[in-house]
């Protein structure tokens, strides 16, 4: 159907621009129907984020340097999580997106244990929204049942729609047709998203910048999320 395999979706996050406001985290939670756990569960470290912000501190007070790392799934080209899945509930597709097939997952949590970035969350209980919120769930994304693992999918439902629209209009997928919610919502444009295979795309250029680095690159997981290091 769609000409798969031509794309390699990736993200570049400019740490200079990121203010740590948390808009991406909120947008992601709303877009993807990520469950809201209560205070009690949160106390037990069971909060669920597909996009999270890692905060690092350097130096002694008052000369501390705080850096915020927005952390989606890194969609590794060589993902440690998909290797260990016993039922192919998570795998890397032709366009480089590491997807989760929720109805297939048996909930063994091996992928969670294998992910060096700890990006995966588990549905310890069935997600439960206040009655009024049920109608504000995103119909494009499934509500996950109890007992399955989930994580950022680069908003793959948006890709499915964008591809379809492009084909209906009989044209190629253009840059900007497909943006995940975090990238779209970022108020400072710190998160760019696009096709790393496309030589003219913004992410391709940014990823080649001297400032670009990837998280735990030495593990050889080949993440597709780049950070642009902070410069004064």
């Amino acid at each position: 159907m769609q000409e798969s395999g031509n794309h390699r979706w990736g993200m570049v996050i400019d740490l200079n621009k990121c203010t740590g406001c948390g808009e991406c985290v909120a947008a992601c939670k709303v877009e993807n129907n990520v469950a809201i756990v209560g205070a009690e569960e949160s106390e037990m470290d069971r909060t669920m984020f597909w996009m999270d912000i890692i905060t690092t501190h350097e130096g002694e007070y008052p000369d501390t340097e705080v850096t915020y790392f927005p952390r989606p799934c890194f969609h590794c080209d060589n993902p440690p999580c998909t290797k260990v899945c016993p039922v192919r509930a998570t795998y890397r597709n032709d366009e480089g997106i590491v997807t989760q097939i929720f109805p297939q997952c048996i909930g063994c949590r091996y992928c969670m244990a294998a992910c060096p970035y700890t990006v995966k969350s588990f549905n310890w209980f069935a997600p439960d929204w206040p009655e009024e919120m049920n109608s504000s769930l995103n119909p494009d994304v499934s509500v996950r049942p109890v007992g399955v693992v989930e994580k950022c999918t680069f908003c793959i439902h948006r890709l499915q729609k964008a591809k379809e629209l492009a084909r209906a209009e009989d044209r190629e997928l253009r840059e900007g047709d497909y943006l995940p919610a975090c990238s779209e919502s970022c108020p400072t444009d710190a998160i760019s998203f696009g096709d790393l295979n496309d030589p003219h795309s913004e992410v391709n250029k940014l990823a080649k910048s001297l400032r670009a680095f990837r998280m735990l690159e030495e593990l050889g997981t080949e993440p597709k999320v780049y950070y642009l290091s902070k410069v004064e």
Binding site: M1, Q2, D94, T99, I101, D140, S142, I156, Q160
Partner: peptide
Amino acid sequence: QISDECSDCHR
């Protein structure tokens, strides 16, 4: 002979 990729339909 249409794609049977999981991620083309599942989400």
